[in-house]
Amino acid sequence: MTVPLTRILMVEDDPDIRAVAHLSLTAVGGFTVALCASGEEALAQAEAFAPDLLLLDVMMPGMDGPDTLAALRAKPALAGVPALFMTAKVQPQEVAHYRDLGAADVLPKPFDPMALPGQLRALWERLHG
């Protein structure tokens, strides 16, 4: 029996997308969510929040997604937490690049907020199946 996915830490610089994602992940998905507006904020909160999954925007001012992931992974408590990048439509070799950086998968933007929780659970099953 797989441990259910419950705690998601999301890093996204755009406040509107944060709001949409929050509603999607809480109201539709029923997850416990920590929202961070930047990589720095994520670094400050992540250990205390102890997420099951990291959801990272790629393009952000200051620390971008890959930088943030690398910094989070440097913390022993977070080293094994799976991460997903969310980014605009990308070419196949870019997806491969993000996977090399340690992402479990890449979700395209724009995302369907009604379908997003289902996609995350399916991924979680796959990772722990």
Partner: peptide, 24 residues
């Protein structure tokens, strides 16, 4: 275009999707 235009679009589409889906 790829960032500044798509970011608000993502928010619009997401917000409308949630409203239509009854999430709000």
């Amino acid at each position: 275009v790829s960032h500044e235009l798509r970011t608000p679009l993502t928010a619009i589409q997401g917000a409308l999707g949630l409203l239509l889906g009854g999430a709000a």
